[in-house]
Design a protein around this nucleic acid. Sequence first.
DNA 1: TTGATTTGACCGAC
DNA 2: GTCGGTCAAATCAA
Length: 325
Amino acid sequence: MECVDSNGGSRLVVTELSLIKELVKQLDVNLGGSPELCKRLAAQIFSVTERSIGMIKSGHFGKRSAGLDSPTPSPLKGVSDMTFKPNKKRKTMERRKQQVRVIPSGEGADTPVGDDGHSWRKYGQKEILGAKHPRGYYRCTHRKTLGCAATKQVQRSDEDPTLFDVIYHGDHTCLLHKTAGANKAQPEEPQNPEEALRLLQSLTVETEGLAAMAGPQSWSTTTTTPFSFSSPAPPPPQERYSKFSAPSTPDDCCFGRGVSVELSPATSGGSSHLAMAAPFRAQSEMDKMVSALALVASAEPAAAFSIDEFDGFGLDDFDVSSFFA
DNA sequence: TTGATTTGACCGAC
DNA sequence: GTCGGTCAAATCAA
């Protein structure tokens, strides 16, 4: 049983959450604008949220995900200063690793169903010595157009064929086109972790109705998204794995059980579609959630709660130890 | 026609 | 020399 630490480490999580908050603000500002930008922002929110949860779950507050590091991380920093440097050298750069479960009923697909909100293009595949399954190499589709340096490697786990090891390199520089986010008044904030948890349990993020805005091909179904931090009965496997599965995401970790975000069928190769909840229209709700999460993450030891409280995120099967490899 | 995937070759780190 | 990562031509699919 791990507890949230209370000092410097948790600040990183708070920083991550602040980034989420900033992104939500941007999203809110841009909701009437480009659907593409909204999608990108949503994907970024998802990615950072996932990372934060990983930190909380693992207790590795002092370890930022590789490739996203900066000594004093700040929102939206560390993305634009990445330079694309093509070479064939063996990667010694920082990386972050995730394990992703796929739909067991998949017809032998060697890539996970769904994706992480990014568009990936496969550029290679290799048999790896000692591994049963080949490793696929993917790079961001926007590598040429936007110089995005993000790449990932996907390899089916030897031990559990339903798991994929996904190793990410670099950040998506294609994601953020920073806009001047208007600061808004802060919503009421919880005063203690328990209150924060209660608030989180009560929160829903309205995503319905945004499908049309984002385009008919992007969203098939959305609904309210309860952030459950309690320990609900596990949903049937089909529910867990048939919705919102993504290569870079540990199941539906971010949105908890009960999330009902169904994606359009993946295009060939599982790329070019968005695997993220629709843009969060309810800015204030998101603000509350972020504030609550921040408070939870920075809780004093005496008030620290069991990390098991986060079971609602559906991280049970997520190999946290490998996340920050 | 265009964009994505496949696959053998190439290159550099180890 | 081996191996992992990338390139790029060929091929496939929408």
